[in-house]
């Protein structure tokens, strides 16, 4: 969906001037096909094609610019500087990700910090709309994309994260440190939301702390691996996007997100795309990691806390006047759904 903003033209010119500074040998630089797209509720995103002449040769590069609006939903956890560093670290790995070009924390350039990365070929249909669901149902029937979905996750969990230089993300201690860190992280978001937590949420937090599982192995964890966060080209995952919640942790955390009902709205297919048995078989074969369903159930409940924290934070942004986006106000009524799910899971 393209957004209409009154300052789009001025913004386009400021972006052009910035790109010009990064391409000192370029002449006749122009940006075409610029669109501001609404993807998620975190960062503002512009897509465009840069055309220029260099050494008498015409050049073109598709670019994606993400700017921190300052009031993004996951602003406390999602720093564009970190995202840039993660993308840099992943460049040399087999995982398909956009090539990062520049990161600027200097707010005098575009008003807020931003990063510029490669515009990768492909589309990213939203699984929450009928058109997206139809897209994934048809792709599931063809059979290639589900395999690519599982293979990309297996590739992500097989990355040598230490060699890739991803230790800066923080490495959990042994035992159940990873799970407890995640519980703490989402409790902090609940606190930041300045909304009084529902007693069911307090019960859920108590249960999560008392039952935190041991992490058997550490891998890079995406944190939100699902359709809608993956770019697709010709029935293949062309790029894994949304590097906002990544951590070094238990790969079952990602697997649980694939398995959760939260991402399939009643569809029998995981993430609206993948048949459950095939996912288990192909993931285990590719990674050599056995899926631990009990641990996944635990992380499924942790996602209930995360969802509640996410919606409470969103509603809080609107209530506090930090955002005027009415979609955020709407999320206040999503909280009871999550709590009802948590209540069921806790055996209420």
């Amino acid at each position: 969906m393209t957004q209409q903003a009154p300052d789009d033209q001025a913004m386009a010119e400021r972006i052009r001037q910035y790109i010009e500074t990064q391409l000192p040998d370029a002449s006749d630089l122009r940006l075409e096909a610029m669109e501001r797209i609404a993807v998620g509720w975190s960062h503002e995103t512009w897509l465009f094609d840069a055309h220029w002449t260099e050494g008498g040769v015409s050049k073109t590069r598709g670019l994606c610019l993400r700017r921190d609006p300052g009031n993004a939903l996951l602003r406390h956890f999602s720093d564009l500087g970190v995202q840039f560093q993660v993308l840099r670290s992943l460049e040399a790995t087999p995982l398909p990700t956009p090539k990062p070009y520049w990161y600027e924390s200097d707010t005098s350039i575009l008003g807020k910090p931003f990063l510029v990365m490669e515009k990768v070929a492909g589309t990213c249909p939203s699984p929450w709309g009928s058109a997206g669901r139809r897209f994934y149902a048809e792709a599931a029937a063809r059979g290639t994309l589900p395999k690519s979905f599982t293979a990309a996750l297996a590739s992500l969990h097989s990355i040598d994260w230490e060699a890739a230089g991803l230790s800066f993300l923080g490495v959990p201690e042994s035992d159940n440190d990873f799970a407890l860190r995640e519980v703490q992280k989402w409790c902090e978001l609940v606190e930041i939301s300045q909304q009084e937590p529902h007693p069911i949420l307090i019960d859920l937090i108590g249960w999560l702390k008392a039952n935190a599982p041991e992490t058997k192995r550490l891998t890079l964890v995406h944190g939100a691996y699902r359709t809608g966060n993956l770019l697709i080209d010709n029935d293949q995952i062309s790029a894994v996007l949304d590097w906002e919640l990544q951590v070094i942790g238990d790969p079952m955390y990602d697997v649980a997100y694939v398995l959760t009902d939260l991402n399939r709205e009643g569809s029998a297919l995981l993430s609206h795309l993948v048949e459950r048995d095939a996912f288990f078989r192909e993931y285990e074969q590719a990674t050599g990691i056995e899926i631990d369903e009990k641990v996944c159930q635990y992380y499924g409940m942790l996602y209930q806390l995360r969802s509640a924290a996410f919606w409470m934070s969103a509603a809080g942004l609107y209530a506090s006047g930090q955002s005027d986006d009415i979609r955020l106000a709407r999320t206040a009524w999503s909280v009871p759904f999550v709590l009802e799910g948590a209540a069921r899971a806790l055996g209420y």
Partner: peptide
């Protein structure tokens, strides 16, 4: 406690 909270969330 849960029985009462169940009623509340319902």
């Amino acid at each position: 406690v849960r029985t009462r909270l169940r009623a509340r969330v319902d």
